[in-house]
């Protein structure tokens, strides 16, 4: 399992791997927002939690179709299916590798971009916390979606349509936690629900992903 994680990370970092693609996208979207809505600090700081969360969601979405498609095309996925690794483990590792290459950089970059959107100073801690708790769920749900569309030519659009509705709960509680933090309210409830969603997806979706992969490899 560790070997697969190491390989996926190495592939992501090498040329053509797409490491940093999501991060660059996140950066550009967030930078574009002030141009769109104008330089009103008050308005920006009010919409900042939502913008940051929507942008990180879209950035995570961007690299989802690479999770299984590349391995499917070159035959690695079939070979992995006949290897001693359980498919559930493969699904879990793929989601983890996706999180390390997209979710983690997004989480680290978000506070810097929060500054651009004049996010309230009290909210930074909760922005970091909510992204740390929420982005793993984005990767796991996305891995499931990628498994569903793995055999399809140009399944990227279908993947977005399948996955985005499933991202709604994470988005709601993630942005809510930051908003409550910015307003000086107690964000514990939202953070706990966010953590619950992540724990739930990691408990259930590897099995669903493995089942879907087995069917798609037939």
């Amino acid at each position: 399992m560790i070997a697969l994680l190491r390989r996926d990370l190495r592939l992501a970092v090498r040329a053509g791997g797409g490491f940093g693609l999501g991060l660059a996208f996140f950066l550009i979207v967030v930078v574009l927002v002030p141009f769109g809505v104008g330089p009103e600090t008050e308005l920006l700081s009010r919409i900042a939690p939502g913008i940051l969360w929507v942008a990180s969601l879209l950035a995570a979405l961007l690299s989802l179709d690479r999770i299984f498609a590349l391995d499917f095309e070159d035959g690695s996925l079939v070979l992995l299916a006949t290897s001693p690794l359980p498919m559930e483990g493969v699904a879990l590792i793929k989601a983890t590798a996706h999180w390390i290459t997209t979710g983690l950089p997004l989480t680290i970059a978000a506070p810097v971009l929060g500054f651009l959107l004049s996010l309230a100073p009290e909210a930074y801690l909760y922005l970091l916390l909510s992204l740390l708790l929420g982005t793993p769920a984005l990767s796991m749900i996305g891995t499931f979606g990628a498994a569903l569309t793995v055999g399809l030519r140009r399944g990227g659009l279908l993947l977005s349509l399948l996955v985005l509705p499933l991202y709604v709960p994470t988005l709601i509680f993630g942005a809510e936690a930051v908003r409550r933090g910015a307003d000086g309210l107690d964000p514990t409830g939202a953070l706990m629900l966010l953590g619950g969603i992540t724990a739930g997806t990691f408990a259930l979706l590897p099995f669903a992903t493995a089942a879907v992969l087995r069917i798609n490899l037939r």
């Binding site: 070997a3 390989r7 053509g16 070159d74 035959g75 079939v78």
Partner: peptide, 20 residues
């Protein structure tokens, strides 16, 4: 389909499958 990764060297490709 041989499952060869274009970005990995020959040794890395083999070592990966040996590890798995």
């Amino acid at each position: 389909a041989d499952g060869i990764k274009a970005a990995l060297t020959v040794t890395e490709n083999l070592a990966f499958w040996a590890d798995v």
